[in-house]
Design a protein around this nucleic acid. Structure first.
Length: 981
RNA sequence: GGGCCUGUAGCUCAGUUGGUUAGAGCACACGCCUGAUAAGCGUGAGGUCGGCAGUUCGAGUCUGCCUGGGCCCA
């Protein structure tokens, strides 16, 4: 308070004139508050107007720039964009814009995945809503509805992506449902047919009775589900003496598969024994199915558990059992001769003794392991027991027509009567030992959420392990080709290589057929006599031509004679299955990187979420390896998933989702972009309120730095520029920092390490510019004459910093840098078209860097000393101080050669002194050679610069100014026509 | 249940081949400034480096186990 009063008195005594007008304060229209939600759409409109993407391409092409191809992984055209989309498209845009800035011609065609079950399901839902049954709608109409639905979402998503500032060839976006794409996909399929990589197999596949379709692994999700469990006795008919008269007990959660049973699997490393039931539990509410005297064969480790379930109170192990060569009869054999076949015991490693009985009921048509072990023992016949609706075929004795799952109405997805019917018959036949219920993880359809079953179906597969006799393959199998391609690909991060390799090494043949409507067809004919696909290039050409003209519908609606030509229609079966959507997306490279201008196959980069190791990276790899003998990409970059603020997965039910539209509405797309730039995208990232607030703070720091530079550069032109050799040390240091950053920024962008761009740049703005350069140079910028070398040098360096910051940050923050650039250079064209400017190597100056490290160390002691004075209320502003700084280290002292210590310390005056300094002087442990006496500045306060100097008053024209300020005002007054005090 | 990845201050991240009291920016608290002002400068507080055990003279860094989280599969 006393100080304030004193200051007022001082200034009022000398208040001859208000010098404010003569001070060169920062001047700019660049607002401190961004107003991004309003401003971004204006900038987008401007980009649209100048056709930024194509202009950039043409400019680069005219300059003979090298090509960079980023091939877009197609999002599914269903639903609004979520934060995961936003992250991914933003990262892609970082790549596109940074490659443009590095001088490349960048090809980026956004695309959409359109076919498939989720859209079919939506349309079915829509039809149900209208009270129409799917059967009452023609396939053509159904597909038309799917097409319209996908088209609508492409529009919505495209708008969302463009709003994020994503640059690309939106006009020529690709879609897997475009007629040309469908034709290309089918042409790719024909290549597999022609090279003999396709075969028709019979295999139990995941089947959804509710949707009447086979499901890919990716279409299945696991949920807890309560199933009935049964322990079933299979009487032994062949085996050791101990085994005969006993029953092998199996345990299953799918009683309905018992009619399909053909074998029992056991494990040779499990110990089995024959057990005699001696007594049952008493006081049971029901009559148990086991009886004293029963002889049961079980894994020793599991016997107790089984007896508990069967309510057996007392039992005795009779003998060790060797399962090899044992044969049983089917538990329903007594009820119907249909089941009068032998049930062999087969050894299999998949059998464990963790739960059950140590024996696995084996129905080759209803389980993957069952199928494998069945084939491994030389069997070929796979019984077909259940139809597409999940009902037993009529030929299945005792159960014909019964449904495993309900498929219609409210009970759709619930168990049908099959389970209970089988259990009842088992009881009747005396084959049931015990029953129960179990909650376990069970496969469900990703779409309908209904349980799925394993069902034996004829399907089309691409072989993984057949040696291929084509020029590209040279006898290698598809698996070998793909594995070699993985080794030839760059992975960011490197761990992705191992991940996809493991999957490709162990994956089964590629099941590509689906019994659905909305997709590209397996457009081929099969010879009914040989069961082989028809190979006729003319037929294929007619198919492709028709699909290219009319879409996939042509295959389904045109008469077969249109395609077959001279071939006998009676002899050929037309395949009406459609292709797995992964085959579609795996073929995008074929119709996006080939047959277009100014692009190249293979792509430089595929960039997707880490889930796509199983998905698009792999489907593209297999498709391309099968047809072209290598991957369609040279590099693969993966990002993690976006979690909530606590690192937990987002879900609508948890209510922890973050909506990109809301962020855009409240803060702007730039904030999403900056967030994406600052996090480690290769791992899972987090987003939420706190994190977005932190991001906005970082944004403000960058924005204010640009704003201050813009303000300080008001009226700057190149004529003012100072040559490097005339620069003061501080400016040389800043130029050195720019030179270092130039290399760091280029390297980081080249390696897609956006964090390594933004982190150093934020630190540079904070530490070097704001806290050092701007703070030290404020006095010169505000008060030196425009002609003063010091001020001109500072502005020259600010110009260099502005030129670089705006372009280095442009790929990450295109909106703000565009705003700043056009604010300063309205006629210079879009900032987004600029290339990283060369930064002279002559700017590199490690000597200055070393000097300023020392200067900063000394400054820290000075500020420490002043801080103590402030705390003691002896000092306010640093300009009130005139510290005496004792430096007992010649090296540290020499760092101040050519520097004005008062300017560096931002005090009014300062004195450097060699030597140890008085004992009571302020010291810091880190810099023991420096001792500071924080004296008050003597003299009068300059009314213009506010520095306190003894010289104030010595220019009689301006008695309240320092000499420098007096000269500056004199020049100012002269320029204004002599007006003065 | 299996494969891969991951857990350093409130937030985002650094921490080279294991080596002195674990760093930065932001946020926070306090102070200064009031000519970058819904700004700027400074000072400070804040971490048993997910946990346990081991290897080592020495571990955030290496090994094993456990635990939380994620992706993919079963």
């Amino acid at each position: 308070m006393a100080d304030d009063a004193e200051k007022r008195t001082n200034s009022s005594e000398q208040a001859g004139r208000d010098y404010r007008d003569t001070v060169f304060l920062p001047q700019t229209d660049f607002p401190m508050r961004a107003g991004l939600p309003q401003k971004e759409p204006q900038i987008l409109a401007r980009w649209e107007e100048i056709d930024l993407y194509n202009t950039a391409r043409k400019t680069r092409q005219a300059a003979g720039a090298p090509l960079f191809v980023l091939h877009d992984g197609p999002p599914y055209a269903n639903g609004a964009i979520h934060i995961g989309h936003a992250l991914q498209k933003t990262l892609k845009d970082f790549v596109v814009r940074s490659r443009f800035a590095m001088g490349y011609d960048v090809d980026y065609v956004p695309g959409w995945d359109c076919h498939g079950l989720p859209i079919e399901w939506k349309i079915e839902e829509e039809l149900r809503g209208q009270g129409r049954r799917k059967d009452g709608v023609s396939k053509a109409e159904f597909r038309e509805k799917c097409r319209a639905y996908a088209g609508q979402w492409i529009g919505v998503q495209k708008d969302g992506f463009k709003r994020l500032g994503v640059l690309g060839d939106w006009e020529n976006r690709y879609a897997t449902m475009d007629y040309g794409s469908e034709a290309a996909i089918v042409a790719e399929f024909h290549k597999f047919v022609a090279s003999g990589q396709l075969y028709r197999g019979s295999k139990p596949v995941m089947w959804s009775p509710v949707e009447r379709t086979a499901l890919a692994d990716a279409e299945v999700e696991y949920h807890d589900h309560v199933s009935p469990t049964v322990w079933v006795k299979f009487p032994v008919t062949q085996g050791s003496d101990a085994a005969r008269g006993a029953s092998v007990v199996i345990w299953t959660t799918t009683p309905w598969t018992i009619p399909a049973n053909r074998a029992i699997a056991y494990n040779e490393s499990i110990a089995y024994g024959a057990y005699l039931v001696e007594a049952m539990e008493t006081d049971l509410a029901f009559e148990p199915w086991a009886r004293p005297g029963d002889r049961l064969i079980l894994a020793d480790k599991l016997a107790e558990e089984v007896f508990k379930a069967a309510k057996v109170a007392k039992w005795r192990r009779v003998e060790t059992i060797d399962c090899q060569g044992m044969v049983c009869e089917h538990p329903l054999a007594a009820l119907d001769t249909h089941y009068a076949f032998s049930v062999p015991l087969l050894a299999g490693d998949h059998v464990t003794e963790e739960a059950g009985t140590g024996f696995v009921h084996t129905a080759p048509g209803h389980g993957a392991d069952d199928y494998v072990v069945w084939l491994a023992h030389g069997h070929r016949e796979i019984p077909e027991t259940v139809d597409a609706d999940g009902a037993y075929y009529p030929h299945v004795a005792l159960f014909g027509g019964l449904k495993v799952l309900e498929t219609e109405g409210k009970k759709a997805g619930k168990f049908g009567p099959a389970n209970n019917a089988v259990i009842d018959k088992l009881i009747e036949a005396g084959g049931l030992l015990a029953r129960g219920r179990l909650e376990h993880s069970y496969p469900h359809s990703w779409r309908s959420k209904a349980p799925v079953i394993f069902r034996n179906t004829p399907q089309w597969f691409i072989r993984m392990d057949e040696p291929l006799d084509t020029p590209q393959h040279g006898g290698r199998t598809l698996r070998e080709t793909a594995l070699e391609a993985i080794e030839a690909t760059a992975f960011y991060p490197e761990a992705g290589r191992n991940r996809i390799r493991t999957m490709v090494e162990s994956r089964p043949d590629w099941l590509i057929s689906r019994q659905r409507a909305w997709g590209a067809p397996l457009a081929m004919f099969v010879d009914k006599e040989t069961n082989q696909p028809l190979h006729d290039p003319d037929v294929d050409a007619r198919i492709i031509e028709a699909i290219a003209a009319e879409g996939a519908d042509a295959w389904f609606t045109r008469p077969v004679t249109d395609f077959l030509g001279a071939h006998d229609p009676e002899r050929y079966e037309k395949v009406e299955d459609i292709l797995d959507v992964w085959f579609d997306s795996g073929s995008t490279h074929a119709f996006t990187l080939e047959g277009r201008e100014n692009t190249r196959w293979p792509a430089d980069l595929y960039l997707e979420g880490s889930d796509q190791h199983r998905g698009w990276f792999q489907s593209s790899l297999l498709e391309s390896s099968g047809t072209r003998g290598r991957a369609p990409y040279n590099g693969v970059l993966t990002h993690g998933f976006t979690m909530d603020e606590n690192g937990e997965k987002m879900s609508k039910s948890k209510g922890n989702t973050v909506d990109p539209h809301q962020i855009i509405r409240e803060s702007g797309a730039e904030i999403i972009r900056l967030w994406a730039a600052m996090v480690d995208y290769s791992e899972d990232q987090r987003i939420g309120k706190t994190i977005l607030a932190t991001t906005s703070d970082a944004y403000r720091k960058l924005r204010n730095t640009l704003r201050y530079i813009l303000g300080a550069l008001a009226g700057y032109s190149d004529q003012e520029a100072v040559a490097l050799e005339d620069m003061p040390p501080l400016e040389r240091y800043i130029l050195h920092r720019l030179q270092v950053l130039d290399g760091e920024v280029r390297d980081a962008y080249a390696a897609y390490a956006f964090q390594d761009v933004i982190r150093p740049l934020i630190a540079f703005c904070q530490e070097d510019l704001s806290a050092l350069f701007f703070d030290v140079r404020r006095d010169a910028l505000y008060c030196d004459q425009p002609s003063a070398l010091r001020r001109r040098a500072a502005r020259t360096v600010m110009d260099a910093a502005f030129e670089r910051l705006t372009v280095w940050l442009a790929p990450l923050m295109p909106f703000t840098t565009e705003e700043a650039w056009t604010m300063r250079f309205p006629e210079a064209g879009s900032n987004a078209l600029r290339v990283f400017p060369e930064t002279p190597t002559a700017w590199a100056n490690p000597g200055e860097a070393a000097r300023w490290a020392k200067v900063q160390a000394v400054t820290a002691v000075v500020t420490g000393a002043l801080e103590v004075e402030r705390r003691e209320k002896r000092l306010g502003a640093a300009l009130e101080a005139a510290p005496v700084v004792h430096i007992n280290d010649p090296d540290l002292l020499a760092a101040f050669d050519g520097l004005d210590p008062a300017e560096v310390f931002r005090t009014s005056q300062a004195t450097l002194s060699a030597g140890e300094g008085p004992a009571q002087a302020f010291r810091l442990a880190e810099t023991p050679a420096v001792a500071v006496e924080p004296l008050r500045a003597q003299g009068q306060k300059c009314a213009r610069s506010w520095r306190i100097l003894p010289e104030v008053g010595s220019d009689r024209r301006y008695p309240d100014l320092s000499l420098r300020d007096a000269e500056a005002v004199a020049a100012w007054d002269a320029a204004q026509g002599g007006a003065g005090a």
